[in-house]
Simulated assay, not measured.
Amino acid sequence: MKRLFLRLVGVLVVFAMAAAGGFAWWAHQPLGLTTSPIEVVIKPNSGVLSVGRQIQRGGVGMDPRLFQILVRITGHGPDLKAGGYQFETGATPLDVIGKLARGEVTHYVVTVIEGWEFRKMRAVVDANPALKHDTVGMSDADLMHAIGAAESAPEGLFFPDTYLFARGSSDIELYKHAYRAMQRRLNEAWNARAPDLPYKTPYEALVMASIVEKETGQAAERPMIAAVFVNRLRKNMMLQTDPTVIYGLGEQFDGNLRKRDLLTDTPYNTYTRTGLPPTPIALPSLASLAAATTPAPSDALYFVARGDGSSHFSNSLPEHNRAVDKYQRGKP
């Protein structure tokens, strides 16, 4: 048994050495690129495995898990930096990791997240040290004028995405890019809209999309959430959606929505006013734009959270009240 054990240990040692040798050989071999040169964007706050996947999706032929292992071996996990990187034919896995660790970007990035309010986007842009901050001291209306927008209120008008820019670029150019991206996406959604929607303009569809964005717990439910609000608009029912009330409260909201808040009238309180609020309440995603312009075919007028991130939809108030008892009050 002792000899067998020693032989087994020996085999495992040989196998481990061979695997280590093969891995070291791979780390020094040129990677396959779909084109050359190729540019890959690494988003901020990405984990190591996520960075590996972004590199692979960008056209660099490297398995994300092998990338993750090599990063751990080299100790560069905390050093990988976001930005736009260019890789050329002949680049090895070690070359890729070294460039990411040194931050040898060709372009910098700002990532705007769907569901953010514009003030959050502006704070993130203002904090980026690679941008030239020409909008410092501007009001929101002044900023909108500076980018050539027809609107004076910025909420909802910037498309959430990852934007590349060269060091020293003006933040005005970044805002222009994001604004034009939203105009393009909104027009595409509007042109593909379902018939007989209760919107008069693309801007009203944008307002609806922002509400859908803030109300949706699960991505697949966006079209049904939109259907509920569209049906309520058609019947001249109040939308009664908490996110609009919270938006209307602004900095007064402390994280706890109270009954008195629902009764306090503001232009955004959809418990006291019928119709859509005057502006969007957030930056909606492409999926929310699509849901607002092509809602699900449904007669639902109500929905309530089940507690697991999903919602129960009801066509009538009695059915809705039973769902509230079940999912919110714990009654059988």
Rank of each mutant, 00 (worst) to 15 (best):
L283E: 10
R193H: 08
A27S: 15
S288L: 07
A189M: 14
M237P: 03
N45Y: 04
T34L: 10
L8Y: 13
E104C: 09
V96S: 01
N315P: 00
R232P: 08
M138H: 03
W26S: 13
V40I: 13
F118G: 04
G22R: 13
T293H: 01
H107L: 11
K214R: 15
G59S: 06
D95S: 05
V125E: 04
G75L: 12
V41P: 01
T266M: 08
A220G: 07
I281H: 12
T106Y: 02
P160E: 06
A101I: 14
A220P: 00
A141H: 06
I225Q: 02
A149N: 00
P198S: 02
G84S: 12
V324H: 05
D265W: 10
Y268D: 03
R234T: 10
V207A: 02
L239P: 06
R119F: 07
N236Y: 01
A24F: 14
Q218T: 02
F23T: 14
R222T: 06
L33G: 03
F5N: 08
F67E: 09
F313E: 06
G330D: 05
A123I: 06
E117W: 12
T274S: 11
I246F: 01
G275H: 10
A291N: 13
V228I: 02
R122T: 00
V96P: 05
V112M: 15
L289W: 01
F67D: 09
T92H: 10
L174Q: 08
F158P: 05
K120R: 14
G250M: 02
E215R: 08
A300R: 05
A130R: 11
I225V: 15
F15T: 08
D325P: 12
A291F: 01
R65A: 09
L197I: 07
A189Y: 00
I172G: 02
F313H: 14
G168M: 11
A91V: 10
P267Y: 04
I147Q: 00
V124L: 11
Y179G: 00
D325T: 05
E39T: 14
G168A: 06
A16M: 14
P37T: 04
F253Q: 06
T92D: 08
N315T: 12
A323F: 05
R57L: 13
R273Q: 07
P278Q: 01
E213D: 01
K326W: 08
Y268E: 03
I172M: 05
A189H: 01
V51S: 11
G103D: 07
V109E: 09
V105K: 15
T270L: 12
G115H: 04
G115Q: 11
Q29P: 05
A205S: 05
R7N: 13
E319K: 12
R329T: 00
K43V: 07
N231R: 01
P277H: 13
